[in-house]
Design a protein around this nucleic acid. Structure first.
Length: 569
DNA sequence: TAGCTCGAAA
DNA sequence: AATGATTCGAGCTA
């Protein structure tokens, strides 16, 4: 077998791909890999990617062929691509579209040119309850009621169905987008926003009309959603993760379209309006009196003839909403998210019920184009003072994390960082209130936590925005607050177990373009040689996949130790 | 209709 | 596998 020492990839039999991070073509290769593989490990020198059935199916749905994947791997691999892997890639990619759903009158057809596949379907016990009737050797017929459930079941059996049964138009609602520049009839969408809408919906094509658009924080997901609504011109139900976001959607719709206020409804705990454009939280949909009781508000899906359902932050979509979504497969569905990763591993349900990935904008690409700031990511490791180390070692597994997270030496690290960035706006973000209170006391900076009234938060936000306050300390509220102002420096003093989403969300807080060098800084402070350090690694995965690199720094503590010793006496 | 407490969720 | 903080929505009170 030929050996190309200078190439950066090793393709393994187990579907893992190793990428040398120091290779000169690293960026190009990483960008290519992320079309069809997920990053699973990211130590300094070698990143491990893994192809999965789902990552290949998403690629296939985006039109990537098996040849493109294997040619790409072949071009960069040191030892070529093992024949078995090559074969499996082909097998997986060709699975997408091997079975498709089409419409026939009131019923639907499951069609495959491969008669053996149809034979296989008929033999599956788990498919019996969907009442599949054989029409001919290539076709099965079933009731449209089962469209979603069947797709969900089939993906589990390894058949990602291509759904070409089309959609109902829904109640018509002309929506004109307000023009920001002079040209008649155009709306000033950024180039990639336009492409994203195009890849979701193509006029006159059965392909598209449902699916997920993956865009970084700050890429203007709301604008894209609104543009899709304008394109389809129909009654729309928008589901989102919290009530601040509900108001944000409403504000932007009124601002960017000619839709009048009485056409836009909020469906939340406080208000129960059902209007041609309705915005609801996931939480109200999943509300029930107690376990085993029915969902009180789930019929919002049927309260109007929706032509489009927008799932904002689709990676947070709760299980009961999946169930409902399975029943409304004839309605167009648009998922918006910064990451397809779900911490609960239900990515295949997103694929079969909301739709495949239609578009993905890597964060680094936005940075290159100047739409977001460049970020220097640093993992700052601090040692633990001896007495803390002692209680860490003796603590049981559940207390270890907390012990490491609230390491008092982190306070010194925060001081150092504030000295290092004496003029830029700084957000300090953490998970334990006690720790944040300590920092607030030491730095004399205001702190916002969940118990603070929203009115008071607003005041602090605007003081921070205007520069009156330079340092702001925030608890987990930062994960939800859409109106939290942007900063140039984020210091994460603690975070929850391994939440990749949270890390991404927090980094998102400093991405807005900066004047001057357009540079921001993200510091993650962790206790050296602890569980926390391990979890930090997992948290970073998603951002590393997006092309960010963490630089590891250790705090110089000889002087700190002495101070600590002196203070103890 | 605002302000409160409560349980549930992720 | 798991923590702790937070938010939401309902239901009660006045």
């Amino acid at each position: 077998m030929p050996f190309h020492k200078e190439r950066p990839l090793v393709v393994q039999n187990d579907f893992c791909i190793l990428l040398e991070t120091r290779h000169p073509d690293f960026d190009e290769v990483r960008a290519g890999l992320m079309r069809f593989a997920d990053l699973v490990k990211s130590p300094d020198n070698i990143h491990t990617y893994r192809m999965s059935s789902l990552s290949l199916w998403n690629a296939a749905a985006a039109g990537v062929t098996a040849e493109e994947v294997t040619d790409f791997l072949e071009r960069w691999a040191k030892f070529g691509v093992p024949a078995a892997v090559r074969q499996d890639i082909r097998r997986f990619i060709e699975r997408y579209g091997l079975v498709r759903i089409e419409k026939l009158g009131e019923d639907l057809l499951l069609i495959s040119e491969d008669v053996d596949v149809i034979k296989e379907m008929v033999s599956y016990k788990s498919l019996r309850s969907y009442g599949l009737c054989q029409v001919d050797t290539q076709t099965l017929r079933f009731s449209s009621l089962h469209r979603g459930m069947l797709k969900q079941e089939l993906i589990k059996l390894g058949y990602p169905v291509e759904d070409l049964a089309g959609y109902s138009q829904g109640e018509s609602l002309p929506i004109r987008l307000k023009m920001e520049d002079g040209e008649e009839g155009t709306f000033s969408l950024r180039d990639y926003q336009h492409k994203a809408v195009e890849s979701f919906y193509k006029e006159g094509s059965l392909r598209g009309g449902s699916g997920v658009l993956v865009l970084p924080c700050g890429a203007g997901k709301t604008v894209i959603g609104i543009a899709a609504m304008g394109r389809l011109g129909c009654a729309t139900l928008i589901l989102t993760s919290n009530s601040t976001s509900v108001r944000q959607w409403k504000r932007e719709i009124l601002e960017k379209t000619d839709v009048s206020e009485d056409m836009v409804g909020e469906y939340t705990g406080a208000l129960k309006e059902v209007r041609p454009i309705t915005i609801a939280t996931y939480q109200i949909l999943t509300y029930r009196k107690s376990k085993d009781d029915p969902f009180v508000h789930m019929d919002l899906f049927n309260k109007r003839d929706w032509g489009l359902i927008v799932y904002d932050e689709v990676h947070l979509l709760p299980a009961p909403v999946f169930r409902m979504t399975a029943e409304i497969q004839a309605t167009r569905r648009l998922g918006l998210t910064a990451t397809l990763i779900r911490e609960d591993g239900r990515e295949d349900d997103v694929f079969s019920l909301v739709g495949p990935k239609r578009y993905e904008m890597p964060w680094k690409d936005l940075e290159t184009k100047g739409w977001i700031a460049g970020v220097e990511c640093v993992e700052l490791r601090v040692p633990m003072p001896d007495h803390v180390r002692e209680s860490y070692e003796t603590a049981d597994a559940r207390q270890k994390m907390r012990c490491a997270s609230v390491n008092p030496l982190k306070l010194d690290a925060v001081d150092d960082l504030l000295r290092k960035h004496p003029t830029e706006p700084v957000l300090i973000i953490g998970q334990y209130l006690e720790q944040l209170h300590q920092i607030a006391e030491r730095t004399d900076a205001p702190m916002i936590s969940g118990e603070m009234a929203h009115e008071k938060r607003e005041k602090l936000y605007s003081a921070f925005r205007s520069g009156e306050i330079r340092v702001l300390i925030v608890s987990k509220v930062a994960n939800f607050a859409v109106d939290l102002p942007d900063a140039a420096v984020a210091v994460q003093v603690s975070g929850s177990f391994g939440s990749r989403q949270e890390e991404a969300q927090r980094l998102g807080r400093i991405l807005r373009p900066k004047s001057g060098a357009n540079q921001a800084y993200f510091y993650s402070i962790v206790s050296e040689d602890t569980k926390e350090q391990e979890f930090a690694l997992n948290r970073q995965l998603f951002l590393i996949e997006q092309g960010y690199r963490y630089r590891i720094e250790s705090m110089n503590v000889t002087t700190k130790r002495n101070e600590e010793g002196a203070a103890a006496k």
